[in-house]
Design a binder for these strands. Sequence first.
DNA 1: CTGTTAGCGCATTCAT
DNA 2: ATGAATGCGCTAACAG
Lengths: 337, 337
Amino acid sequence: MKRHQVTIVDIAKALQLSKSTVSRALTGHPSVKADTRQAVLELAEKMDYQRNMLAISLITRKTNTIGIIVPEFTSSYFPNVTIGAQEVASKAGYNTVICQSNESYETEVANTKVMLANQVDGILVSLSKETRNFDHLKIFQRKGIPIVFFNRVCDDMDVPKVIVDDFEGAYKAVSHLLERGRKRIAHLCGPTSLRISEKRLNGYKAALKKYNVPYDESLVIPYDLNTDMVHIYVTHLLSLPQPPDAIFAISDPTAIEIIQVIKKKGLRVPEDIAVVGFSNDFASGLIHPSLTTVAQPVKEIGRTAAQLLIDQINRDLSDWKSIIRVLKTELIVRESS
Amino acid sequence: MKRHQVTIVDIAKALQLSKSTVSRALTGHPSVKADTRQAVLELAEKMDYQRNMLAISLITRKTNTIGIIVPEFTSSYFPNVTIGAQEVASKAGYNTVICQSNESYETEVANTKVMLANQVDGILVSLSKETRNFDHLKIFQRKGIPIVFFNRVCDDMDVPKVIVDDFEGAYKAVSHLLERGRKRIAHLCGPTSLRISEKRLNGYKAALKKYNVPYDESLVIPYDLNTDMVHIYVTHLLSLPQPPDAIFAISDPTAIEIIQVIKKKGLRVPEDIAVVGFSNDFASGLIHPSLTTVAQPVKEIGRTAAQLLIDQINRDLSDWKSIIRVLKTELIVRESS
DNA sequence: CTGTTAGCGCATTCAT
DNA sequence: ATGAATGCGCTAACAG
C-alpha cells in the first residue's frame, strides 16, 4: 500500500524556494521573511503537510518520547499513575509510549527492546513481580538513557526513584487495627521479589512490636498477587486453631477479594474480621463494607516520576542524580475496620 | 547530552565486513553464510546493539505502530479496551501509542497531529464528547492511513467501526425495569453529540412503547458525563410532583454516582428507586447495592477493533471495507433493580 | 535573509 | 555470498 507523503520538497517546489528556507519557516526560525513564512505555513496547512518526526529524530537524536512500562492496567493504580505522568510529559513536549509487562519478566524484557529500538529519550518503569534480573534495564544506563523507577523499584540501580513510605503506611494501618482492639492480625503480603512487600511487612512487624503483640509467623502469608488464590489463604487462616480477627492486605484488590470471601463464608466485616488494604483504589470506597486503606498520592507519583525523568534527560550525563523521592501515605478509615 | 549509539558500522568495522552484509545478517536474509551471521549476531548482542527503528521506518515507510486515541482512562472501560487491542496488535508485530483526549476536542486534534508526525500505520479512535468536526480525522483517510472507530464512532466517515448494540442494550435494561413493575423510569442520557446517547435513548423509548408506558420528556435528562453534576439532576428528579421509581443511566460511573446520591438522601435502592447502568465496569459489582447493568464485551471490542485495523493496513488502499461490527450486550441483574 | 552541502542509520538496488 | 552506491525526509553547519 503506497501512501504518498507530502514533504518539504513539495512545498519548496510549489513556492520556488529552497528546502532550507521552507524548513526554517516551518520550524519558526527567526531568520525568514514574514511573508515567506506566511506563504509556507499556508501552503503546508492546505497540503495537509505534517513534519516527519522519524527524519527529524534521526538527525537530532531525540524523539521527545518517553516510555512507560507498567505491570498491569487492571486496578486503578497504574492507569492513574500514567495519567499523572502524561500530564507532566505532554506539558514538557514529550509523547508517551505505554507498555504493559503483564507481570511477566519475559514481556518486560521485550518491552525494553521496543523502547530502545524506538529510541525513547527515557523510561519510567515499575517492575513486574517476576523480575529479578536487571540486565535489560542496565542497558539503558550504559547507553545513557535515563530511567526513573516508581512503586516497584530496583535497589540494584543508582537512578531516581519515586516511592511512598510503605513502611509507615503499613505501620499506620496495623497500628490502627491494634488500637481498635484487634489482637491477632494476619497479613497477606506480596511476593518476596518486590521490595514493597518487604517494607510493608516490616511496618506490620514494627506496629506489632510497639503494641507488644508477639509476631506470629503463621499469620503471615506471602502470595503472588494472583487474586484467584485469595480464597484459599483466607480459608486457611479462618481454619487456624486461633483464627485472626483482622487481615492487613498488601493491596486493595487483595483486600476486596478477602472481603468477598469472608462475606461468602457468612462472616461479618468488620465484626468478625476487620480488613485493611493498601492504595485506595477507586473500588475501595464503593465496596460494602467500604474498605479502610492506605491511600497513595497516585497521580502525584506519576507527575513526580515524569518530572524527575525529564530533569534527567535535560541534565548532562555527567551529573545524574539518583534521588529517591518518598511520598506520604494517608490512612483512610472506612467501614471495614 | 551526547549518547553514543552502537550502529551497524561499528559491527562491520569490528568484523571486517561490509555494512550490507551486517545488515543482511541482522535482518535474517538467507544469502549470508551461516558463520558470518553467527559472528554478527553474537557481536551485536555483546555490544548491546539495537536496530534503530527510526532509520528503518524512514526507509520502509512503515513504523509497525498503531495509535489509539481514547477519551479517558478513569473508568475501567477504556483501559480494558486498550488491553484487548494491545493483545492483538502485539501478536501481529505492532506497537501501540496511546493518547487520551480528556474528552476535549482540542486535545483530540493535537493527538492526531502527534500520530501523523510519528507516522503511525493506523489509528483506533473513540471520539471525545466534544467532537463535532471530523476534519482532523479525515486527513488520515486522505493520506491513506487506516482508521477504525470503536464505541464513540463517527457516522460521517466510511471506515470500519466496532460498536455494541446500544439500542438493544438499553431496550433490555428498561424492559427489565418495567417487568419488575416500575412505572416511572427516568433516564440520565449522554450528550447529544454522541451517537450512543441517541441509540440508548431510542432503546429506552422503544421499551416504554412496548409496555404501553407513555414517554414523559421531563424524565429524560441529557447531561455531559461530568459526574459532579449528577446530584443536581437526581435532586431535581426526586423533587418532581411525580418522582421516578427507577433511573436508567447512560453509564456505570453515572449510575454509581446516582446510587451514592440516593443513599445520601436517605432513600433506599432498589426499594424506593431502582438504578440500572451501562457497561459493567469493575466497580459495579462491588458497590452496595451492587449495580444492575448492561455488560459490554470490553476486551473483545479492543481485539476486534485492532484486528480490523490491521486487516485494513495489510489490505490494498483500493478495497477498503467499511464494515460495522456490532457486538452483543448482556443484561446483568444485580441488587439495584 | 536565503541557498548549498553533508549526513543521521539503515535497507536496497546494483554490481561483482 | 559479499561489497559499493543510492536515498528515505529532514536539519545543521557552511556559505553567501
